[in-house]
Design a protein around this nucleic acid. Structure first.
Lengths: 134, 134
DNA sequence: TAATCTTGGACTCTCTGGGTCGTATTTATG
DNA sequence: CATAAATACGACCCAGAGAGTCCAAGATTA
């Protein structure tokens, strides 16, 4: 269906929220989840992935939470997707596992032509930053 | 995961194959399925949808089969997707059921910004035609 | 030491994409 | 007219992934 996952949506909503206050401001997962009616546990997972990807920083313990680690204008949506879903937005699975991974092997005739579409898609998601969704 | 469905892939492969011979040429589903190792029954379903969508024509009975109903250069990939999957390539489900269908209602803050991405995506899939995947 | 966070694994549940099967219908041809 | 070769179409199954939940463990501050 060619859709963004809920996780990515939640992640973008959270990042947008964070990007609207000065960098370094700390938000808790609960706070973010309540504000937008997102399932708390799931959002927590998403935020943890964003931490591992270096998008945000985390502080544990009381008074802990998450804060932006990158400036929103330097944070492309494509990067957020890759970190959360562990994959780029792909038109066909041919391109997920490197070259020559097509399940049709020699018979796949649309692989190359779709490559162009793929590149254009990448540009689209690379260009748009978190800053732009504010 | 933002991927094209197998059905669409099969459809594009079949359409590309048909587009390489002069228009009006008749191909059977079995013929197409064998050529590219696609599951016959599934491809048949796809071809039937393409018939209903006016993309190809069908002839029943012996010596029957399918033939292109449109010139490949006038057949955008977006149209093929819509016919087969019964939906446009959507970035978020917000846009599938008209306006104000967001599951977050008033709290969804990324709906509008992603609209831009959506439009760019539409342009991409509208521009590319079956002719271009040959 | 207690309260409040994040971390992270395990688990369930539902939906849909992918695929299969069976049968009815159409039609050319011997 | 009978048969074979097509499409047409509905019903069904199955595995996997996406979405969501639960719980225990570790960190930190007050």
């Amino acid at each position: 269906m060619l859709q963004l996952s809920k996780k990515v949506e939640y992640g973008l909503i959270a990042l947008r929220h964070m990007a609207m206050k000065p960098i370094g401001h700390v938000f808790t997962a609960k706070e973010l989840a309540n504000e937008y009616d997102m399932p708390y546990e799931l959002l927590a997972k998403v935020l943890q992935k964003l931490v591992k990807g270096g998008v945000i920083r985390s502080l544990q313990g009381v008074k802990g939470g998450y804060s932006l680690a990158k400036r929103p204008e330097e944070l492309p949506v494509s990067f957020v997707i890759r970190v959360i879903d562990e994959s780029k937005p792909m038109v066909t699975e041919c391109y997920t596992d490197g070259p020559d991974s097509c399940y049709l092997f020699g018979n796949c005739t649309i692989r190359r032509p779709l490559g162009k579409l793929q590149r254009n898609l990448n540009v689209l998601f690379d260009k748009m930053t978190v800053q732009e969704i504010i």
